[in-house]
């Protein structure tokens, strides 16, 4: 690959190669405060499907150690999104050391709050707003549970804000560093927010899971306890590698749901959501 960068996110190192300079330049700017890995764990490739596609209506295919066949390419203007998707893809398909939960997480006093839910539940928005209120952001996409210790490890990649969440986060983090507005992506408008320096400097520090939340955005405020069996089933659905980890995954997840209380929360707006999380944590 012509253009290459390396970056470390939490305990994972990536090498990202690209046929084009622009996505690498954007990554190097937005991830400038992140450490460089020694030997990367995963490779991500951003490449043109045909040589002339480097120049003519350039479109970015996402590959690397693992690839999804027939994935649609993205326009070069969305190359940063392609890089982020490429890193997520390698994690989702190849991560074997940690149990991967599709969740956001924040930490205070060594205790981690894990928030999981379907796309649109507000995981990223809640995490960004809690970061603005002094919580340490651990990640907005994946939480890594170490089967050996039960601890949650951070994966603080860029916070991916979609559609209305962009303005909400800009108002809450006025001095935040934001990436370019990526309009008209398959998920609507996307803008990335760089985690604050504390999140980056402390990203190697794991935390003890203290609360599991299953948020839903757009409903009247409500809260109910989630029994361990329901939490278990919902978390297997939100884990991309539970099956691959086999008994280690079973042990890690049973330990998590047996030792950490779980709550389902409905919230009508972000202020209500933040109030609920802070009241429960």
């Amino acid at each position: 690959m012509r253009h290459v960068t390396h970056l470390t996110i939490g305990p994972v190192g990536f090498r990202i190669g690209s046929d084009w300079r622009a996505p690498i330049a954007q990554l190097e700017d937005l991830y400038r405060d992140y450490p460089k890995p020694g030997i990367p764990d995963f490779n991500v490739h951003l490449f043109a499907a045909r040589p002339w596609r480097k120049i003519l209506r350039p479109s970015v295919m996402i590959g690397g150690d693992y690839t999804i066949p027939d994935a649609a390419p993205l326009p070069l203007a969305q190359g940063l999104l392609a890089a982020e998707m490429g890193m997520n893809l390698q994690m989702a398909l190849a991560q074997r050391r940690y149990l991967l939960l599709h969740a956001s997480a924040v930490e205070r006093d060594g205790k981690a709050v894990l928030m999981t839910g379907i796309s649109g539940a507000g995981k990223s928005t809640l995490a960004a707003l809690l970061m603005a209120r002094g919580w340490r952001l651990m990640g907005d996409e994946f939480v890594l549970i170490d089967p050996a210790t039960g601890l949650a490890h951070a994966f603080p990649r860029l916070i991916s804000l979609k559609n209305q969440a962009i303005a909400v986060a800009q108002a809450a983090v006025p001095d935040g560093r934001f990436g370019p507005l990526l309009a008209g992506t398959p998920k609507g408008d996307i803008r990335h927010l760089v985690p604050d320096l504390r999140a980056i400097r402390k990203m190697a520090e794991p935390a003890e899971p203290a609360l599991l939340l299953f948020p839903r955005f757009g409903f009247d405020a409500a809260e109910r306890p989630v029994p361990p069996s329901e939490a278990f089933v919902r978390l297997t659905q939100s884990s991309t590698n539970y099956v691959h980890l086999a008994e280690r995954g079973f042990d890690a997840l049973t330990r998590l749901v047996q030792s950490v209380p779980a709550r389902a929360i409905d919230y009508p707006d972000t202020d209500g959501g933040i109030a609920l999380v802070e009241a429960l944590a």
């Binding site: 361990p228 069996s229 278990f232």
Partner: peptide
């Protein structure tokens, strides 16, 4: 076999 609450988990090592 891990009893949780009303439900019980059974992990079958042979099949995963």
């Amino acid at each position: 076999i891990v009893p949780l609450d009303a439900l019980t988990l059974v992990y079958h090592r042979a099949s995963g």
